Amino acid sequence: MDLFSSEKIKNILPFDGITNYHGIVLNKEQSDFYYQKLLETIAWKNDEALIFGKKIITKRKVAWYGSSEFSYTYSGITKKALLFTEELTALKNLVEKESGETYNSCLLNLYHSGEEGMAYHSDGEKMLKKNGAIASLSLGAERKFSFKHKETKQRIDILLERGSLLVMKDVTQQNWLHRLPPTKKVFTPRINLTFRTIDLN
């Protein structure tokens, strides 16, 4: 099977946005290799966020890398990017080839089990390129991923397979929320890489 065949790319949103599911872009051997490498080499830290003025520290761990050491603010917390590692550069190149987009940063999430997730939100930080693509690469455990339209409340669910790529673009962030719902059925970790473009102008 041709992993880069356009026939398997599908926009999963019915309207008001484009979110293309590219399916599996890393085979099992590649996926397992990068999963283990990232577990061992990424500078993981518990995430911090300001919620109603109170600092919250999450169970899940995060890391932020980029093509330069620029700063990035989300959820009221400013982070400074570490420089892309060799493995992240290789994955960025693969994702850019598959998606036809370019990226200059990557926010990584480490969910230790299904009990850790992410609430509904949209990635609308001012530093992000307006209507720019956000490419989500999944390693490790398979997890359900949900979208909810901001007006109609229509919900779309998709199972993100190990080694798969999901690309949110166009006006998706303006019109849809997304989340990673917690589950008691998953006991192993998942690493999620979200490649994005910081507007440096």
Rank of each mutant, 00 (worst) to 15 (best):
A49E: 04
Y103W: 06
I56R: 14
Y120K: 11
R162A: 11
E69C: 14
K129M: 14
I134C: 11
S138E: 09
K150A: 05
R162G: 06
S71N: 12
E87T: 05
T58R: 00
G117F: 08
C106G: 00
L137M: 02
W64Y: 14
K153F: 00
I57H: 03
L91R: 00
G76C: 09
G124E: 15
H121W: 08
H149F: 07
L139T: 01
D157Q: 09
Y103V: 03
S122D: 08
L166P: 02
F52C: 04
L94W: 00
S122W: 04
T41S: 13
G132A: 06
N104K: 12
L82V: 00
G66M: 10
Y72K: 10
I158W: 03
E86T: 12
L83D: 01
A81T: 02
D157K: 12
I134H: 07
I77F: 09
S105I: 01
L128A: 10
Y74R: 04
I42F: 06
K59D: 13
N131Y: 04
T85I: 04
K126D: 11
L165T: 04
T152D: 07
K129A: 08
K45Y: 15
I42Q: 10
L94E: 06
S71M: 10
Y111I: 01
K144G: 04
S105F: 02
G76Q: 09
I51D: 00
S68K: 15
L166S: 07
K150M: 07
S138F: 07
L50H: 10
S136K: 09
I158M: 02
K129G: 00
L82W: 02
E125D: 06
T85M: 03
H149M: 06
D123G: 06
T152Y: 05
A81R: 05
K54R: 13
K80N: 14
L166V: 04
L166M: 10
A49V: 10
L83Q: 08
A133T: 01
S75T: 14
A49F: 12
K97V: 12
A119I: 10
H121N: 12
T152I: 03
L83F: 10
R60D: 14
A133M: 08
R143L: 09
G66A: 11
S164D: 05
K54W: 04
S71F: 07
A63Y: 03
V167T: 07
C106D: 08
K130E: 06
K130N: 09
G114W: 14
L108C: 09
E86H: 08
S68F: 07
D157Y: 01
I77E: 10
D123H: 13
G114P: 03
D47A: 15
V62N: 12
E96V: 02
G117T: 08
